[in-house]
């Protein structure tokens, strides 16, 4: 085992979230394709997404992955193209994490709230 620091964790999270999002993209294409079978089929499937708590958690995780991957992606691009970017890589990692968590708060309330009986709408 190697005890890497922020840079290594940012990279691990980036990879894992990237792979996760790609896999979801495949699934998402399939479920969207179901739309061709008409409203009954499609609505039946989307209901599963909405009603099953586990799918709400998965969606929450997906959004977390998309958010982290996006913010850390910005961090990487800044490092790549701004000559001084590397000096702030640790700070930007915490920034990406912070923004992700921040954006996840309302998302969590909206997505997971109903499961716990809050923010019903």
């Amino acid at each position: 085992m190697y005890r890497g620091r922020e840079g290594m964790w940012s990279w691990i999270f980036h990879r894992v979230s990237g792979v996760g999002v790609l896999l979801f993209l495949f699934i998402h294409i399939v479920d969207t394709a179901l739309i061709g079978w008409g409203p009954d089929v499609y609505n039946a499937v989307t209901t599963i997404y909405h009603e099953w708590a586990i799918f709400r958690f998965l969606q929450f995780t997906l959004i977390a992955a998309v958010l982290y991957h996006s913010f850390n992606g910005v961090r990487i691009i800044v490092i790549d193209f701004w000559p001084k970017g590397f000096q702030y890589q640790r700070l930007m990692f915490y920034g990406a994490m912070g923004l992700t968590v921040l954006a996840l708060i309302p998302t969590g309330v909206l997505l997971l709230g109903p499961i716990f009986g809050i923010a019903e709408r």
Partner: peptide, 11 residues
């Protein structure tokens, strides 16, 4: 997911 309540995402 955010602007539209997910219950409304349907056919």
């Amino acid at each position: 997911h955010i602007a539209t309540p997910i219950e409304e995402v349907n056919y």
